[in-house]
């Protein structure tokens, strides 16, 4: 049996694909920035913050890391309205992504902070720096330099995992694929093309992250 590939049947939907592609890219960029901000705050709280904050952040991290992303997404989109928080598909998708990456990056960044030699902290203390000054000027940059590759991998993982947001009809690349194949019934071609697009996205993201790394850490 032979199957005749007919990519031409995708052409009428190029704008749908483009829309999905852009959505996924923006979702990735925003959740990367938001997730790293949350992760930095979480890691700083666990290592340099008040003691009472630690179990709270630890609970957040463990809950997120030990439950499926799709369940987190459904909870935010379908569950929260019961508590009076009603979010659009798009807002729920962005929030779930930030919350998810925030938890993973908290742990990654914390590992980086803890890898900073104790002697550096003592040297900074001896120079009369405050804990916040030490965190900001001595610890964080070193920590990020150490864990940057791990963080970059996590960003790629989260980007590919973002396909799940199509399940709440957030209009990402996978949503576009589902939409198109439900119209033209060319599942093989559609998912082949979309898989290729994800592959290209991942390769491009890696290259961009490597470039950013070179700029921020010129001597890494």
């Amino acid at each position: 049996m032979t199957y005749k590939l007919q990519f031409a049947e995708l052409l009428p939907y190029w704008d749908v694909l483009l829309h999905g592609l852009i959505f996924t890219i923006v979702l990735t960029i925003v959740s990367t920035i938001g997730g790293i901000a949350v992760g930095t705050a979480g890691a700083a709280a666990r290592t340099f913050g008040p003691k009472w904050l630690d179990p709270i952040v630890a609970a957040y991290v463990e809950i997120i890391r030990n439950t499926p992303f799709i369940v987190q997404l459904f909870f935010i989109f379908f569950g929260l309205p019961a508590a009076g928080v009603k979010l659009s598909e798009t807002a729920a998708a962005f929030l779930a992504m930030v919350v998810n990456l925030g938890a993973y990056s908290t742990e990654i960044i914390r590992a980086g902070i803890e890898a900073v030699p104790k002697g550096h902290l003592e040297a900074a203390e001896s120079l009369a720096m405050t804990r916040m000054q030490i965190l900001r000027h001595v610890v964080l940059k070193q920590a990020f330099q150490k864990i940057y590759p791990a963080l970059a991998s996590q960003i790629i993982i989260v980007m590919l995992g973002s396909a799940v947001v199509s399940q709440i009809s957030a209009e990402d690349l996978t949503y576009a694929a589902n939409y198109i194949q439900s119209r033209n019934f060319r599942a093989f071609e559609v998912y082949l093309v979309v898989a290729l697009l994800y592959l290209l996205l991942a390769i491009a993201a890696r290259a961009v992250l490597r470039g950013i790394g070179r700029v921020i850490f010129p001597k890494a």
Partner: peptide, 10 residues
């Protein structure tokens, strides 16, 4: 001043 220098490497 410390035995291990403890300069900030970045």
């Amino acid at each position: 001043v410390f035995q291990q220098f403890n300069l900030f490497p970045h």
